[in-house]
């Protein structure tokens, strides 16, 4: 499956200030792509558009299989906040998105893998913020998504938990090979997980740099990641503030490849 994102412009109200402009890129089968950019770059909005929750003002998102249009893929969506149903237990929150009968078995298995065994019958209000996030991740994995959309899924988690959940996400990716699109503020996190990083500028959000990450997996070495990070920051000093001129300076931005 491929996803062609082609958004000329998106504003929340007709004639309003655009949040996104000239966003076009291609997501390839089984690719993990990370979106990095400052606040106000419309990254969450872009995720909502690709997930079909918002229709773009101008432009479209095409899902294709072997070059032919296909219906929207099965989506696992991890929102910026956990967004669990407060009136359902952790296990029921997961089986809610599964239609089949043995869903409680699946739900309990996923919760166990997320380190939440014993919390199956607790309500979200009884779980800590980090635990709620883990339930939200388990919910996204539960549907065996073809497209996994994640909006800063590991933010405000302690380091070991974040690392554990990243590993779990990669496990899912290894077995099911969904397209993963995930938003993060954390450059190192993007480099440790993604095949490709797309940098956004703000107001309106537009991609300014699109680079492949060719570090071999598994990327267990923090040093390699930090080294790559420093290299990139040296090459593109303004990369994290998302300034426009990067595009003009780097007409071949898609062919930089093999930075390692």
């Amino acid at each position: 499956m491929q996803i062609e994102v082609n958004i000329a412009q998106h504003a929340y109200s007709a004639g309003g200030v655009p949040v996104l402009r000239d966003v076009s890129f291609l997501l390839n089968d089984g690719e993990i792509v990370s979106l990095v950019g400052p606040s106000g770059a419309g990254k969450s909005t872009l995720l909502n558009i690709i997930g079909g929750l918002i229709t773009p003002s101008q432009g479209s998102v095409r899902y294709t299989v072997d070059g032919r249009d296909s219906p929207m893929p099965k989506i696992g969506y991890v929102f910026q906040s956990p967004r669990l149903m407060p009136w359902l237990t952790a296990a029921r929150n997961i089986s809610l998105v599964l239609e089949d009968d043995d869903s409680s078995v699946v739900a309990n298995g996923l919760l166990e893998r997320a380190g939440l065994s014993g919390s199956e019958h607790k309500f979200p209000g009884q779980l800590s913020g980090g635990m709620q996030r883990r339930v939200a991740l388990a919910r996204a994995f539960a549907v065996n998504p073809e497209l996994l959309l994640m909006d800063e899924p590991f933010v405000s988690l302690d380091l070991p938990t974040a690392r554990q959940l990243r590993r779990q996400m990669l496990e899912l990716w290894t077995s099911e090979r969904p397209i993963v699109l995930f938003v993060t503020h954390d450059f190192s996190e993007a480099l440790s997980v993604a095949d490709r990083v797309i940098f956004f500028s703000a107001h309106p959000g537009t991609p300014v740099l699109d680079i492949p990450v060719t570090l071999p997996r598994p990327r267990n070495s923090e040093d390699d990641i930090q080294q790559l990070r420093n290299q990139l920051l040296q090459r593109y000093p303004d990369i994290l503030s998302g300034t426009e001129h990067l595009l003009a300076d780097n007409p071949h931005m898609n062919s930089i490849g093999g930075i390692r």
Binding site: N48, G51, L53, I75, F79, R83, M85, L96, V97, R139
Partner: peptide
């Protein structure tokens, strides 16, 4: 926001109503 969860996971109309 919870409604968006229901839409993203494509819950049936009945399940959305009920849960």
């Amino acid at each position: 926001e919870l409604f968006d969860v229901a839409r993203a996971y494509r819950l049936s109309r009945w399940r959305t109503m009920r849960f």
